Each structure stands twice: as C-alpha cells, then as structure tokens.
Deep mutational scan, measured.
Amino acid sequence: MLEGKVKWFNSEKGFGFIEVEGQDDVFVHFSAIQGEGFKTLEEGQAVSAEIVEGNRGPQAANVTKEA
C-alpha cells in the first residue's frame, strides 16, 4: 500500500490522478475506489492505494479515503 493525495479527479468522466511523493502520478479510475454509493475523490484528499500494472501503465487499485 502507498499513501498519496488526489491531484485531480473528474467525477463526470470517472477518473483522475493521485500524487505520490517520489514517484510519477498514478492513474485512478472510479471502479478502484472502495466504498458504497457514488464513487468520487476530492482534489487534495489523502488516500491509500495499491499500484497494479494496467493496460496503459501503473494504476491505482483498492483506493481508500483516509480520515
């Protein structure tokens, strides 16, 4: 698991990027966000996630919002 913060997230398109210190930004799709209801993230929000290899490079999986 790694910790980072949301760089930006487009709720209409359902994707965005997470900033991780010392690494390239990581793509995040709404389907990777854990929880019930409408899955979205806010800019600057702290999150933790796993990194997996997607079709277009590294992407976030099992994204959870930090308190």
Rank of each mutant, 00 (worst) to 15 (best):
G22F: 07
D25L: 09
E12N: 11
V26T: 02
E12M: 12
N55C: 15
V26D: 00
V47T: 01
G54M: 07
F27S: 01
G22T: 03
A46Y: 14
F15A: 01
F17C: 08
S31A: 06
E21M: 11
Q34K: 10
Q34C: 14
A32N: 09
K7D: 04
V6N: 03
Q34F: 10
V52I: 12
G35C: 13
L41S: 02
A61Y: 08
E42N: 10
H29F: 09
K13W: 10
G14P: 00
N55Y: 14
E66Y: 14
M1P: 11
A32W: 06
A60P: 02
G44S: 05
S48A: 10
W8I: 02
P58K: 13
E3V: 15
G57W: 06
E3S: 14
A46M: 14
I33D: 06
E19L: 12
K65L: 12
N62R: 14
F27K: 05
E12I: 13
V26W: 05
V47Y: 00
E42T: 13
P58M: 10
A61E: 08
R56P: 06
D25V: 07
E43A: 15
A67V: 13
K65D: 04
E50M: 14
F30L: 08
P58S: 08
E42C: 15
H29I: 04
L2Y: 10
E21Y: 12
F38T: 06
F17T: 02
S31Q: 07
E36I: 11
F27P: 00
Q34L: 14
E3L: 14
K7R: 10
V28P: 07
D24R: 14
P58Y: 09
V63I: 06
E66N: 14
F30M: 08
F15K: 00
N55T: 13
Q45N: 07
A61G: 09
S48C: 15
T64I: 15
P58G: 05
E43Y: 13
V20N: 03
K5A: 03
E66A: 14
E21W: 11
F38V: 06
E21F: 12
D25A: 06
F27H: 02
S31C: 10
K7G: 03
Q59C: 08
G14A: 00
N10C: 11
E50D: 10
V28L: 07
Q59I: 10
G14H: 02
V28E: 06
L41V: 03
N62G: 05
F9I: 04
F27W: 04
T64A: 09
E50G: 08
R56W: 15
G57I: 03
F15D: 01
E42G: 08
G44A: 04
W8C: 09
A67N: 12
L41G: 02
G4L: 05
V47N: 02
E43W: 12
P58V: 10
F17P: 01
H29M: 03
G37E: 06
K13E: 04
A61M: 12
G14N: 00
E53W: 15
N10V: 04
K7C: 08
E36T: 12
E42F: 14
G44H: 06
V20T: 05
W8R: 01
I51Q: 04
G54V: 05
N10G: 03
G44I: 02
F9T: 02
F15N: 03
G22V: 03
K7I: 07
F30R: 09
G35H: 07
N55D: 12
W8Y: 07
G37N: 05
K7A: 04
L2N: 05
Q23C: 12
R56C: 13
E66C: 14
K65R: 11
T40N: 07
H29A: 00
V47F: 00
G16M: 04
G22R: 03
S48D: 04
L41A: 00
E50N: 13
I33E: 06
F38H: 08
G35W: 08
Q23E: 09
R56F: 12
L41F: 05
T64F: 13
F9W: 15
N62T: 10
N10I: 04
Q45C: 10
Q34Y: 09
E36G: 10
E21Q: 12
E50R: 13
K7L: 05
G37A: 05
G54L: 07
E12D: 11
S31I: 06
E19W: 10
E21V: 12
G57T: 02
V52P: 01
T40I: 09
N55G: 11
F30T: 08
G22D: 07
G44E: 03
A32G: 10
T64E: 08
I18E: 00
G57R: 08
A46G: 09
P58L: 12
D24S: 12
T40P: 03
G57Q: 04
I18S: 01
E36R: 09
A49E: 01
N62W: 11
E53L: 14
E19F: 10
L2R: 11
E66W: 11
V63D: 02
T40V: 08
A46L: 14
V52A: 07
F30W: 15
G22L: 04
V63K: 01
E53P: 12
A61K: 12
A49G: 12
G57A: 05
R56L: 09
G44N: 06
F17E: 01
A67S: 13
T64G: 06
S31E: 08
G35A: 09
Q59P: 04
G35V: 08
V47D: 01
E43F: 12
K13R: 10
K39G: 05
N10F: 05
G4D: 01
S31F: 06
G14V: 01
G37W: 06
T64S: 10
F38N: 05
V63A: 03
N55M: 14
E36M: 10
V20D: 01
E21R: 11
N10L: 05
I51R: 08
F30S: 08
L2S: 07
E50P: 02
A60L: 05
I18V: 05
T64R: 15
P58D: 05
V6P: 02
E3G: 09
K7W: 02
Q59D: 02
E43D: 09
D25Y: 07
Q34M: 13
I18P: 00
E21K: 12
E43K: 15
I33A: 03
V47M: 02
S11T: 12
F9A: 02
A60K: 02
K5V: 11
S48L: 14
F27I: 01
G35E: 09
K65N: 07
I18L: 09
G37L: 04
Q45P: 00
K39Y: 04
E42L: 13
E3Y: 14
K13V: 08
A49W: 12
A46N: 12
M1A: 11
G57H: 05
V63G: 01
T64V: 15
S11P: 13
S31R: 07
P58Q: 08
I51Y: 07
I33W: 01
E3T: 14
G35T: 09
D25K: 05
F15I: 08
E50K: 12
G54W: 05
N62E: 05
N62I: 10
A67Y: 12
E43R: 15
L41R: 00
E53S: 12
R56M: 09
K5D: 01
G44Q: 04
E42M: 14
F9K: 02
I18W: 00
I51V: 11
E19H: 11
K39H: 05
S31W: 08
K65V: 14
